[in-house]
Simulated assay, not measured.
Amino acid sequence: MSETLNRESLLKAYRIMRTIREFEERVHADFATGEIPGFVHLYAGEEASATGVCMHLSGADYIASTHRGHGHCIAKGVDPVGMMAEIWGKATGTCKGKGGSMHIADLSVGMLGANGIVGGGGPLICGTALAAKIRGTQDVGVCFFGDGASNQGTIFEAMNLAAVWKLPAIFVAENNGYAEATSSKYSVPCENIADRAPAFGMPGVIVDGFDFFAVHKAAGEAIRRAREGGGPTLLEVKLSRYYGHFEGDQQTYRAPGEVQKLRETKDCLLQFRRRVTADGEITNEQLDAIDREVKTLIDDSVVRAKADPKPAPADLLTDVYVSY
């Protein structure tokens, strides 16, 4: 167990992962009613990745997300109540109901936003990392992207630029095995996405995305290296999502029982619980209490979101352009 993870840190990590899971499970259930507008792409099953990475970050560090961004938002510190209102399209949402699921952002905590453009976060992170380098801070930028985005030119260009300029950037490839419905075994010619790292002159690290501790350790080393001026790292986190590419995806491309087997044998929350309770430092009762508190938080956020007002017609042209 990492020395940086004391009892308080472990409880915090579990709370973040449980909040992501409960948030996503509730959105999954409510989306089926037809009340939530727009598209939804759920992060359930991948909680250890966002949490393991973002536990090392401060509010001054920036992350760029993907269309599957709820987990990254929560791990970076975006308020789940505001997020739920945003997903319901309400004026009280994080982006005043104008972003929805795929475009949640909160610059106040360093969350540049979920992104409907596949691979769109790479250039954004190069910008924040360059700003940190010019200012002489030790801040870093983290770009989360999927195995589908690993084939996008924007990601290649961003990694190349980060390596040439030795930027404090970390590229986190969350390889859940499917780019929408296409297996990464078909769309990626090399065995691992991280195998591409040497072409850009940066370390490539592969980690088990079901193991929070493995992600936390690998991310910590990459982030420390970036803060110390060592340049970028490509971190490939191998994991799996529990739901479809989007809500409504029938997942006919997955084997029968595939997801159920993952939930029973590899689930990151179950693995975490078994490990931290094994030595008695943390009890199941403590974790159960967090489960209840998180469920209450998410239930309350839905009640509030349903009752909150929608944006008014007069709001249509606000927040369209930046005011300097």
Rank of each mutant, 00 (worst) to 15 (best):
A222M: 06
A173Q: 07
V302S: 08
N192V: 02
S184V: 12
L124W: 03
R15G: 00
I290H: 08
W165N: 08
Y243R: 14
A105W: 08
S65I: 02
A129F: 01
A44V: 12
V188F: 14
F39D: 07
S65G: 00
L287N: 07
G177N: 09
G204M: 02
A13V: 11
N192H: 15
K185M: 10
M202G: 05
H28D: 12
S108F: 00
Y253M: 05
H216I: 00
I104M: 15
I104G: 08
G257Q: 07
H70A: 05
L130E: 10
V164Q: 04
P311W: 02
S101R: 04
C95F: 01
V164R: 01
D300H: 11
V40G: 08
K76S: 07
I16P: 04
F212K: 07
K266D: 09
A305L: 04
G119P: 08
T277M: 11
G77T: 03
G38I: 01
Q286R: 01
G113T: 02
N151M: 05
K310Q: 04
C95R: 01
R274Q: 11
T51Y: 07
A32D: 10
D300C: 01
I36T: 02
G99H: 06
P203G: 06
D139C: 10
Y324W: 13
N176D: 14
E8G: 04
T137C: 14
G34K: 10
A222I: 12
I20E: 10
G97M: 06
G136K: 05
D79Y: 03
T4N: 14
